[in-house]
Amino acid sequence: MESQKGKLTRTHSSILRSPTVRSSIHSLSSIAADDEEEKPHRPHRRPPFRRNPPTHALLLTLPFALIFLLFLYLRNDCPLFANVLLFSSLFTAASLAARRFDLFRRGATAVRRVSSVEWSIGGVERKEKRAGRRIVREGVEFYSNGDFYEGEFHKGQCNGSGVYNFFGKGRYEGDWVDGKYDGYGIESWARGSRYRGQYRQGLRNGYGVYKFYSGDSYAGEWVSGQSHGVGAQTCSDGSCYFGEFKCGVKHGLGYYHFRQTCLGCRNGDKYAGEYFADKIHGFGVYHFANGHCYGGSWHEGKKQGLGMYTFRSGDTRCGDWDAGVLKTPLAPSDPTVEFVVQAARKAAENSTLVPRVDSQVNKAVAAANRAATAARVTAIKAVQNRIDGRFCDTHV
């Protein structure tokens, strides 16, 4: 993937215009195996109800027969008593019939529930068992460009955990969703660059650490494959920046400590303040290694506008600056100069108050390491399935 972008470029104020992350791969075929899966033992279940023997039914009808004979005997002599007796017997019979019907209905419902139970092994539901076969989720897929994938599949795409090897370029180890990097993982390239952290829909997203083969690194927030949010940037020469990023470049409040001579910057120079589009821009304070200091307005990395330059001896030069050169000297007590200098000092102070994200980054890196380890284990299982003949790879 690095070879697609060519050689990475870097300036002293930016190390990260991240290379495009490969967000998708070729479509993958579904994988299934023909071996039978062991069926679970179904325990014997007692029916929820059972019918009474015929002798019990005969005993239940006998009292109603006697009541009916008594009604026939008394209907002429005591018609009122006979009618009450008959009504009571009919009411009792109706109640018993209703109770019997309710028991029958509950029993039928229980039977339906028993018949809909999903049987499982080890407490994991396996709906594939209805067909008497087991779906092998781990497999190996080869591609015409030399790439290959070892890991889990679902509906013909990389899903779950797996390892994708880019032919002669690098590899990805971690989580997958619908054929794209999603979750946590590790990307590594042939030249030595590596990223560990979070992904979303095939792009670096969340927290993570990117280390370039040149020795530069970025640790912080990512959005859509670019450094975006708060992060720390370290260069191979020892220079470091901590602050805000936007779309891959420094933008907002930040603090930069220069270590070696770089584009006119002396060893040990420090700047704290505002950035815009990867350049010192706005209000800020620059401390030179020789003890000099400038606080005021900046434009694209140069002193521009009102500001005050203070020498190590304590002498000052104030006024309106143009491209780093003082054009209109003003007194230090000038209200406009004092206002701009105070704004620069406030911006420098705010840049040191940007919240750190070290703990979030460390957690993401640890999760990425775990995901990569799981992906390697899954890849081994996928290869073993192929060796055992439980997987038929598809060439595209």
Rank of each mutant, 00 (worst) to 15 (best):
W222L: 08
F288L: 10
C293E: 13
V285A: 05
V249D: 02
E300I: 05
H299L: 13
S217D: 12
G231K: 11
Y286E: 12
R266Y: 03
G252C: 06
G220N: 09
G248W: 13
G202C: 02
H299M: 13
G284V: 02
G268M: 08
S236P: 03
E300L: 01
N205W: 00
A272Q: 15
A277G: 00
Q260N: 04
F212H: 02
G254K: 02
G248M: 14
K302F: 01
G301P: 00
K279P: 05
C265I: 14
K302C: 04
G295A: 14
G206S: 08
L203A: 07
G291V: 13
H292G: 00
A277I: 05
C265H: 14
G264N: 12
C265P: 07
G295N: 00
H257W: 06
Y271A: 06
G291H: 08
G225C: 14
H251E: 14
G231A: 09
Y213E: 12
C240W: 02
V223D: 12
D237L: 10
G264W: 08
G220L: 07
D237T: 11
E274T: 12
T261V: 12
Q233L: 01
G284D: 02
E221W: 04
F258H: 11
V285M: 04
C262A: 14
F276V: 11
E221F: 04
Y286R: 01
G215F: 08
R266N: 10
C293W: 01
C240E: 12
C247W: 13
H281S: 13
G225T: 11
L203S: 00
E221I: 06
R259C: 05
E300Q: 05
A232F: 09
S217R: 11
Y241G: 04
C262E: 13
D269P: 03
Q226P: 07
D216V: 04
H228R: 07
S239W: 15
N290H: 09
Y241E: 02
L253G: 10
I280R: 07
G252F: 08
G238Q: 11
G208A: 10
C265K: 12
Q260E: 15
H228D: 15
Y207D: 12
C240F: 02
Y210G: 07
C262Y: 03
G282V: 02
C247L: 08
T234R: 15
F276T: 05
W298V: 05
H299E: 14
